[in-house]
């Protein structure tokens, strides 16, 4: 009897729907929210498409006034002369030179540092180093640019006895600092992801730690390291403020690291303020943006491809 009463009370609290059919009214709210979450999920796709769309829409208008041939192959970027010329070549050359310099500096240092962190450093040092490297990536580029002006440019001028320290080299050195965290973090992840068995097997065969690193670990992590370098290159090409502040910005094709150079990024940032909306110059800067975006996207896609391949090999 007592049991029956208790059952009754329970029934009052929980009336399970015996019918398992979905309740429209109840699930409608959940359905709507799930659709909203899906929309949020594809924001990145929408934003990325919008970026491409807006750059193309505005940038391609340039070719009503300027031929594609002139834009791609002319060696002159004179947007505000009486006879304006919009040749992107010197800007591409500037970007590539500074990026190449930065990568030459940051790859050996970055990969070496990544190996040190993942294989040599004791655990506590490892943690401190990781924090320092993350902090390096958090330093605003404009602060590095400022130090470039007040410190590094002077050093470059005096060391190489130049008339001006605002050179491609100055830019490369600073940009290498910005590419380093990317290269180190991703290489370190790649080496860390390797199975413990690799190390054990190699050491058990009588190899030294160094032999294990250079013969087993680095080759096994090579895809990840290559992806790290690619992403580092992407970071270097896209860097704006630092290069704008320290490379002198002469729009001519640089022949050595010790002359002034001008990148695509710096051109957009520096000249946009002088343009009128929908003028040829305005369109030209968007067209430069398209070239820049296509370069970085290609680099990213290659990095993604390499990383995916690495992941598959890992299985």
């Amino acid at each position: 009897m007592a049991n029956a009463q208790e059952m009754l009370v329970t029934q009052d609290k929980f009336t399970h729907r015996k019918n398992l059919k979905k309740d429209i009214k109840h699930s409608l709210g959940e359905y709507i929210i799930e659709k909203i979450i899906f929309c949020l999920g594809i924001t990145s796709v929408i934003i990325f498409s919008l970026i491409f769309l807006f750059l193309l829409r505005t940038g391609l208008t340039l070719f009503r006034d300027v031929s594609l041939k002139e834009f791609l192959f002319s060696k002159n970027w004179f947007p505000i002369s009486v006879n304006p010329q919009y040749g992107i070549l010197p800007l591409v050359a500037g970007s590539l030179l500074i990026t190449a310099g930065a990568i030459l500096i940051s790859v050996p240092i970055g990969v070496g540092c990544a190996i040190y962190i993942s294989e040599v450093a004791p655990p506590k040092t490892k943690m401190v180093l990781k924090v320092i490297i993350e902090f390096l990536s958090a330093i605003p580029s404009v602060v590095l640019g400022f130090l470039g002006i007040v410190v590094l440019a002077n050093w470059v001028r005096i060391s190489f006895s130049l008339s001006s320290g605002f050179t491609a080299l100055t830019g490369s050195i600073l940009v290498s600092l910005m590419a380093l965290p990317t290269i180190i973090t991703i290489s370190d992840d790649a080496i860390n992801a390797l199975p413990k068995e690799y190390r054990e097997a190699s050491l058990a065969l009588g190899a030294t730690k160094w032999e294990t690193i250079i013969n087993v670990l680095v080759p096994a992590a090579s895809s990840g390291i290559i992806a790290a370098i690619m992403l580092g290159i992407g970071r270097a090409i896209g860097e704006t403020m630092t290069v704008m502040m320290v490379t002198g910005n002469a729009a001519k094709i640089p022949d050595t690291f010790l002359t002034s150079a001008r990148t695509m990024t710096a051109t957009i940032a520096a000249e946009m303020g002088d343009t009128v909306r929908n003028g040829t110059h305005y369109h030209a800067l968007f067209a430069v943006g398209i070239v820049l975006l296509m370069m970085t996207t290609c680099i990213n896609l290659i990095a993604d491809f390499v990383l995916n391949r690495a992941r598959k090999e890992g299985r």
């Binding site: 990325f48 992407g234 704006t240 946009m272 800067l285 970085t296 996207t297």
Partner: peptide, 13 residues
Amino acid sequence: NLAGVPSVVYGLF
């Protein structure tokens, strides 16, 4: 790809 878009391109956008 968004993570790799240069900041100045975000500015243009």
